[in-house]
Design a binder for these strands. Sequence first.
DNA 1: ACGGAACACTGGTCAGACCAGTTTTTAATT
DNA 2: AATTAAAAACTGGTCTGACCAGTGTTCCGT
Lengths: 253, 253
Amino acid sequence: MAISQEISYRLERLILDGGLAPEQKIPSERQLAARLGVSRAVIREALHELQGRGVIETRHGKGSFVASMVPQPDNTSDHSPLMHLFEGHPRTLYDLLEVREQLEGQAAFLAAQRATSLDRHRITKAFKALEDTDPLSNARPDHGFHLAIVEASHNPVLVHVLNSLKNMMLMTVQASVANLNPREEMRKKIVRQHRQLYDAVMEGKPAIAQKVATAHVRFVSEAMRDMEKQGSKVIRMPVPGEIPARDSLQNPH
Amino acid sequence: MAISQEISYRLERLILDGGLAPEQKIPSERQLAARLGVSRAVIREALHELQGRGVIETRHGKGSFVASMVPQPDNTSDHSPLMHLFEGHPRTLYDLLEVREQLEGQAAFLAAQRATSLDRHRITKAFKALEDTDPLSNARPDHGFHLAIVEASHNPVLVHVLNSLKNMMLMTVQASVANLNPREEMRKKIVRQHRQLYDAVMEGKPAIAQKVATAHVRFVSEAMRDMEKQGSKVIRMPVPGEIPARDSLQNPH
DNA sequence: ACGGAACACTGGTCAGACCAGTTTTTAATT
DNA sequence: AATTAAAAACTGGTCTGACCAGTGTTCCGT
């Protein structure tokens, strides 16, 4: 494997494991290059990979910083890079969610139809983990729950595609879910949706499971749209093992 | 904003738009550098960003390729990987069709809802080409018709995902159509389905379009299942996947 | 103390070279 | 002529060292 990738993985693990705190400054490119005994070019390439997956932010003349996972008190500048992203190319994000809506629904349908006892056990476990977790930091359990259902669909293609789509979504998105949770009404609704989804799948009711799952994604999507309108900040929250992507594009054709 | 980021955005947009198909090779770093008038370093940094997002894959000595959102068949063996798929893992094919069923339906739904006059023109053109073609060799028009509809959905993510699926599916549509068409009853049904789909999209009836498109894929899928049971061979019919160039990044050749 | 000019950082870009895999072309051998 | 093996022409991976462009600090003259 390429050196730049080894370094990016190494740095990412360091960051996600807490070795480097959010907002903390990363050593300068020249320092890293010297310390790791490689050229500055590979350091830059490694940093660009991390940048691509939203793990770090780089500011010209200042340095690179671990992306914050926590709401940032108003940053002097009126436009954080993240908001800028949303403002500039919000389309793809919703395009992504649009497709996900459909596929999560199908996954739920199939899961309700095909789940084995082992699947049910896994789903139940994930569901309980979701309930037992602090709502403010349940991005991981949330992901685990949905993943368990998708896998119970027993359609590897579906699993792979949904995984790809999730990876292509900004961490920002996942974080936004975490952002939604603090709002009591939202959190309640989401919890109820999860409960409904869980019940439908476990009781083997495909049609209902599909409906609930689709509605769930749509709900999150619309909630984000609202947040965007209100100008609320969308926060990053890296989740290990996930490779989010940024959106782009505005108009096809 | 940094040049490397502008380039990565541009490339990502190209890819998500479908201008660069999954598994398609991206111009070499030196070519991109020359064509875009920048140094190779910034090209590499841009590509590393996309790599971090999982949008592209890079292989030493070979080049960079648009990442497929679908597990790739065993390409190691140069002996008709498709047949291998059919014979060895027939499940995968139906898994693919299962997902496609859903997505083609969604595409049709969105197309009926969002198609512009230009889209309608394209769809009509493709539809007529489909009708005017010898049923025994209309794999390409068939593909063109469905593609026109997908693109009219104005969801680049959907375009890209379906592209991935089709890419891997050995052009199931084409192959199956070629196989199904000779059977008179089948051919008639398929023609009628196409007609219904066309009408629904052109008349702006999303619900109907979705239903028809879904049913169409399911029909083809089940027909193939029947054929398989009867022991009929499912024949591969390769069709050069061509994606029209929409940007100066394409290889002129 | 103040202001501003150097200076010392930071990342961003460029150029050209060379290494390491892969593919194609060429040329020698059979 | 067909095969095969060497050579050339690709591809990405790394290195070097230079210079530009923002940012922050230091220090000096007023």
